[in-house]
Design a protein around this nucleic acid. Structure first.
Lengths: 138, 138
DNA sequence: TAGCCAAGTCAGACATTGTCTAAGTCAGGT
DNA sequence: ACCTGACTTAGACAATGTCTGACTTGGCTA
């Protein structure tokens, strides 16, 4: 995903060492990191990067639609680099592990007009919860 | 819902003024209050009630299954007294208004086995997002 | 290549939401 | 009425995120 860096440059992003590092962290592991985890990994590559910059950069990536915010629990937001293919999340109720999943059908069509109360409904988030195999084994 | 007080007594709850007030607040308005809003309304009826007690009591009501926690944004949790009829939520992306909705179909059946990764999936939360009529008008 | 300056970064204070602690209070059984 | 453990309290603490105001720098211009 050095594509990502290209796209950002194309959108007029000023390229700095800090932004490159944050983008690389997200690119490097296709997991769902919290802001603090992103910060920790970024510090490993660029020790003087600050928390504020990581938050700012993540916020910008979200605004640009390059990264998704995921809030599967009430703890820290997580950042999902898989922003270009619609998907939902499956979360382990015990350990918090998160998987991207692709349900069949369109959940939007399950909400009849009579249940929309005049809202212009544009989006739906689905979070499946259960116990993951390793927690079930333990 | 003085039913609620009955049910709680039946479950061996020690009945205190504080718990009664919290239960009354939730009963009184079928909206989705945050813990702080519950606290504010509780203080109006019982000035010396503490924040900790409100949090404790809400937590107990949730454990007992009498109230649901709703996390439609990354701000404060909200508490939904409508715990006895399964439903999902429709949220205004602009003002945060929340409505209970009842989609057709069962979203659980939209997740094929091949997308369950060995999880024992037991629950699903759906949050619809859109613009409510009054925000659309403004 | 040098100089400029708005965009970007920084450390750390602050805000919000929620949890914990230790001491005091009270509901309800005897 | 009295006891006792459950309940409540004020406030400290914790986790996450936002803001501020001074400093730094990417990349344009010449």
């Amino acid at each position: 995903m050095s594509d990502l860096l290209e796209r950002l440059r194309g959108r007029g992003w000023r390229m700095t060492a800090q932004r490159r590092v944050v983008a690389e962290v997200l690119d490097g592991e296709h997991v769902h990191l919290t802001a603090d985890e992103v910060h920790a990994r970024a510090v490993a590559k660029l020790p003087e990067i600050s928390r504020a910059t990581v938050y700012n950069t993540l916020g910008e990536l979200v605004s640009l639609g390059e990264v998704l915010e995921v809030a599967t629990d009430r703890r820290a937001k997580r950042y999902d680099p898989n922003a270009h293919r619609p998907h939902q999340h499956l979360v382990c109720a015990r350990c918090g592990a998160i998987r991207d999943v692709h349900p069949t059908g369109n959940p939007l069509s399950d909400l009849p007009d009579s249940e929309r109360f005049g809202f212009a409904v544009s989006d739906v988030e689905v979070t499946y919860r259960g116990i993951c195999p390793s927690c079930a084994a333990a």
